[in-house]
Simulated assay, not measured.
Amino acid sequence: MIRAMQPADTPDLLALLNWMDDAPEREVFAPSSREQGELGSECEDSVSFVYDGDDGVQAYCAISPFRDGMVLEGPLSETGEHLTDLLRRAVEHAEGLPVYAFCARDNLGVRDALEAAGLTPMHATDFYSAPLSGLAQGAAVPADYALVTQLPIADYRALYRAAEDAWASRLDWSPEQYDAHFARDDVRLLVLTRAGKPAAFAELELNPEEARADVTHLAVHPAERGQKLGRSLLHLAAADAAQHPEMRHLRVRAHDHMHAARALYARVGLGHCRSIVTYMLDGEEEA
C-alpha cells in the first residue's frame, strides 16, 4: 500500500538510493544524503511517500519546494512497479504550483511513469567531462584582456542580461546573497575584461567528494563573441581547479538547444558523460 514515509523507513530508502547510484541510467532527482541520520533529516523537508509491500518499502517518491514551484524526488523502485501511483499521490500536494522532475535520459521506466502522471518533457541537458591535466595545459589569458576574480553585482547582472541567459533567479539575488555565494570556498568566478569592461566570465564550483570541478555557467558578451573567449575560460577554469590536488576532472553542461556550446566542448576535448531530461507539470494557480 502507499502511505506517508516514516522515520523507520529510512534504511529501506537508503538501500533504494544506493541501488540507484549503481547505474547511471537509474538516476532521478533524489535526496543527496547517503548516511541514515542525515537522510532522515533531509526527508523532513519533503512530503514523502513509500509503497510498503510484504518485504518492506519497495518504492519511494516525494515532493518539495523548488524555484517557483515544487520538485519531485524520485520515483524510485527496483522492480519498476507503483511508479505512476506514487507520482500521482505526490503531485496531489503541489497545491496548484508547477511541478518539475529530472531523470536520466535512459531511465525509460520513470520517463513513462512521469508522462502517465501528466508531466511533459521540456528539454534535455547533456554533461561533458575531461581530465583537468590536459585542459589546464592550454590556459592563457588572451591578448588585450585581463583576468580578474571579482565582479560588482551590477556588472554581473548586466553581462547575464547581455548574454541572454535564462537563469533568471540569479538576477533576483540581493547584494548580500551575491556576496555570500562568491565568498564560498568551493565557488570561483573567473572574469575576462577588456579596457576594464567585463567581456566574459565562467563560474566554477569544486566538488571534492567526486574529484570534479563543475563550470556552472559560461557567459560571453555578444560584442565579444568570435574571440574564442569561451575556450580560453574553459582552459583557465581547468587550471584554477587543478591547483587543488583532489580535483581530477572538469565538467560542463549544455541544454539541447545550445548548439554553439556543444560545438565548443567538442573542440576542447570534453566528452559526453551524462544526459538528464527535465519534465514539468504546469501549475493551476489563479492569477
Rank of each mutant, 00 (worst) to 15 (best):
residue 120 T to L: 14
residue 121 P to M: 06
residue 124 A to N: 14
residue 125 T to M: 13
residue 126 D to A: 15
residue 126 D to K: 05
residue 126 D to R: 11
residue 127 F to D: 03
residue 130 A to K: 08
residue 130 A to L: 08
residue 131 P to V: 14
residue 133 S to E: 15
residue 136 A to V: 09
residue 138 G to L: 05
residue 138 G to N: 13
residue 140 A to G: 00
residue 140 A to K: 07
residue 141 V to C: 04
residue 143 A to Q: 09
residue 144 D to R: 00
residue 144 D to C: 00
residue 144 D to H: 02
residue 146 A to T: 15
residue 148 V to A: 07
residue 148 V to L: 02
residue 150 Q to S: 15
residue 151 L to G: 07
residue 151 L to E: 04
residue 152 P to D: 15
residue 154 A to E: 15
residue 154 A to K: 14
residue 156 Y to C: 10
residue 156 Y to K: 10
residue 157 R to W: 10
residue 160 Y to W: 11
residue 160 Y to V: 13
residue 161 R to F: 02
residue 161 R to E: 14
residue 162 A to L: 06
residue 162 A to W: 02
residue 163 A to F: 02
residue 163 A to M: 03
residue 166 A to M: 00
residue 168 A to K: 01
residue 169 S to F: 04
residue 170 R to V: 12
residue 171 L to T: 07
residue 172 D to S: 12
residue 174 S to W: 05
residue 174 S to P: 03
residue 175 P to Y: 05
residue 175 P to L: 05
residue 176 E to H: 05
residue 176 E to Y: 01
residue 177 Q to C: 01
residue 179 D to G: 07
residue 179 D to P: 01
residue 179 D to H: 13
residue 183 A to M: 10
residue 185 D to F: 09
residue 186 D to K: 10
residue 189 L to H: 05
residue 190 L to W: 02
residue 190 L to S: 06
residue 190 L to M: 09
residue 191 V to A: 05
residue 194 R to D: 06
residue 195 A to N: 14
residue 195 A to E: 12
residue 195 A to F: 04
residue 198 P to W: 10
residue 199 A to E: 02
residue 201 F to Y: 11
residue 202 A to K: 01
residue 202 A to N: 03
residue 204 L to T: 05
residue 206 L to K: 11
residue 207 N to V: 10
residue 207 N to Y: 09
residue 208 P to L: 07
residue 210 E to A: 09
residue 212 R to A: 11
residue 215 V to H: 02
residue 217 H to I: 12
residue 220 V to K: 01
residue 220 V to A: 01
residue 221 H to S: 09
residue 225 R to V: 03
residue 226 G to F: 00
residue 228 K to V: 00
residue 228 K to G: 00
residue 230 G to H: 02
residue 230 G to T: 02
residue 236 L to Q: 04
residue 238 A to G: 14
residue 238 A to H: 04
residue 243 Q to F: 05
residue 244 H to Q: 14
residue 244 H to N: 10
residue 247 M to I: 09
residue 249 H to S: 12
residue 249 H to V: 12
residue 250 L to I: 11
residue 250 L to S: 06
residue 254 A to S: 14
residue 254 A to P: 06
residue 257 H to L: 01
residue 258 M to Y: 02
